[in-house]
Computed example of a mutant assay.
Amino acid sequence: MIGRLTGTLLEKLPPQITVDVNGVGYDVDVTMTTFYQLPALGQKTTLYTHLVIREDAHLLYGFGSREERETFRQLIRITGVGAKIALAILSGMTADELAVAVAQEDVKRLSSVPGIGKKTAERLVLELRGKLSPSGLAGSPGGLPFVTTADEKNDIVNALLALGYNEKEAAAATKTLPAEVSVSDGVRLALKNLMKG
């Protein structure tokens, strides 16, 4: 089991990044919460990881904190919630926000995540009750703003598509983004727009 990676950040194509560890490049799918906290390319980073081994692939998921990884592991134990949906949940809200939504039995908030219907949201509340507790840490830092190019806009749309939103939803969510926004900030703002809708 690969439990942690420390290496140089080579690529950031949300939700996937590549980390070079002593000459070996690891492709890691990360939550948007973790993505916003990543350093610049070429900088050293450490991620807590969870490895999923399937017949056709070995998939590595990365998290900025042990708490986020533990929340991911709690989510994938629930029937009907796979790694992709768990990643989408933790991209739409932090581990703390999820703990609060579960504690408050906020089915509406949970079902606003793509791939989560009302029944799955109710199952999340039922099965996670008492297993998650907010740490009291809120917010995640964004990057510095700069002029968004067509490629960066595409990266934002692609990140939303990878998280399970359809093209229409992704286009609507990115339509109102400011002219000067980084990819990570753009994804964060677009996710907020989608959560409101």
Rank of each mutant, 00 (worst) to 15 (best):
R73A: 10
Q74M: 14
Q74V: 00
Q74D: 13
L75G: 07
L75N: 02
L75V: 05
I76A: 00
I76E: 08
R77H: 13
T79I: 12
G80S: 09
G80Y: 09
G80C: 09
G80V: 10
V81K: 00
V81H: 05
V81M: 10
G82R: 10
K84Y: 12
K84D: 13
I85E: 08
I85C: 11
A86H: 01
A86W: 03
L87I: 14
L87K: 10
A88G: 10
A88Q: 06
A88S: 15
I89C: 12
I89R: 11
S91T: 08
T94P: 03
T94A: 01
T94R: 10
D96L: 03
D96R: 11
E97G: 03
L98C: 04
L98P: 01
L98D: 01
A99Y: 05
A99L: 06
A99N: 00
V100R: 07
V100Y: 01
V100D: 12
V100I: 14
V102Q: 09
V102P: 09
V102G: 08
A103C: 04
A103H: 03
Q104K: 15
Q104M: 13
E105R: 13
D106W: 08
K108T: 14
R109C: 03
R109Q: 12
R109T: 13
L110Q: 03
S111K: 14
S111T: 11
S111G: 07
V113P: 06
V113T: 12
V113R: 00
V113G: 01
V113D: 04
P114L: 12
P114H: 13
G115C: 08
I116V: 15
G117S: 07
K118I: 01
K118D: 02
K118F: 00
K118E: 06
K119C: 02
K119R: 14
T120F: 03
T120G: 11
T120I: 14
A121M: 03
E122V: 04
R123P: 09
L124M: 13
V125F: 05
L126M: 15
E127V: 11
L128T: 08
L128I: 05
L128Q: 10
R129A: 14
G130F: 01
L132I: 04
L132H: 01
S133N: 15
S133V: 12
S135T: 15
S135N: 07
G136F: 04
G136C: 06
L137C: 01
L137F: 13
